[in-house]
Design a protein around this nucleic acid. Structure first.
Lengths: 153, 153
DNA sequence: GTAAGTGCAAATGATTTGCACAGCG
DNA sequence: CGCTGTGCAAATCATTTGCACTTAC
């Protein structure tokens, strides 16, 4: 498969391509059709999909792609800081393309994960016990509960 | 293997046995030597071990125990609310026998997990966005950083 | 005595890897 | 054109399960 022409228009499609071209250049990896489509799927996913879910979505555009390319590409993207890998309910890795600081709202019924932003949390007074322990680099916060839709059922 | 006599002395060993006997009775499961030793290992573990780690520890006392008994027993204990299962860095489940509300301090160098208590967190003002989403049942909080010992290296 | 629990071995599911070919730079 | 990336199949690792035997109650 040959990639689209290098000329940049202002369509969102072409912007993604151009953005991805620059990322590949910057990190010295090759721009392949597979990587581009995985990148697109990640950008449009707000539900923190598993590798299998990403596989299913990319397959619609690239039917010949294999699951191991998904895994390899996700690992590459993770190393470049484009996605974060995390584990939640089970042994399946989930991938979050949202690189802005945020937290998760998790419904324990439907297992859907929603991002939320809470910048004021920075002002929180961290307990002394935590300060004594060492140097804190990040705070992970997560609320678990039942979302509105599931409550209705 | 025949279990020790049912008479309760005040030694910590016997107290654990008696405590476990009552738990089994209450939940209607059989008191086996394997379950008791897994229970002991959990009680004495503050490092949130994986199933393999628990297996290695129990094996010192019960050399013939099998890994699948560890898994089955951990699942049973989880269902009874004696341990919590969670996923952190990888696809390996970790088990936490601490049933009191607490949070985790995680060293990203040595991967050690320390419990800490922060009851005042209950007074935190939960953002409206979170309240609108649904009913919150639990808050999970975790600090990641580098512990004192690892900083020295 | 009987149903629950255990150990063994094999199955399963997620993820990784070796290798030969394909395609980006 | 060379080396990185991909697809395939097989390997690996964590965890689960079927089955026959054991044991707590």
């Amino acid at each position: 498969m040959i990639l689209a022409s290098p000329t940049n228009t202002n369509s969102p499609e072409e912007n993604t391509l151009e953005q991805f071209r620059l990322l590949c250049q910057k990190h010295g990896i090759k721009l392949t059709y597979q990587r581009l489509e995985i990148f697109r799927v990640l950008l449009s996913s707000t539900d923190h999909p598993t590798a299998e879910e990403i596989y299913a979505r990319v397959k619609e555009k690239v039917p010949t792609i294999s699951l191991d390319t998904i895994y390899r590409t996700l690992t590459t993207f993770e190393e470049l800081g484009l996605v974060k890998r995390f584990y939640l309910f089970d042994d399946k890795a989930r991938f979050d393309p949202n690189t802005k600081p945020h937290f998760h709202l998790i419904c324990t019924k439907c297992q859907k994960i929603l991002d939320f932003y809470w910048p004021e949390i920075k002002n929180i007074k961290i307990p002394d016990q935590v300060k004594k322990w060492g140097k804190i680099n990040q705070l992970y916060l997560e609320f678990r509960g039942v979302c509105r839709q599931c409550q209705k059922k």
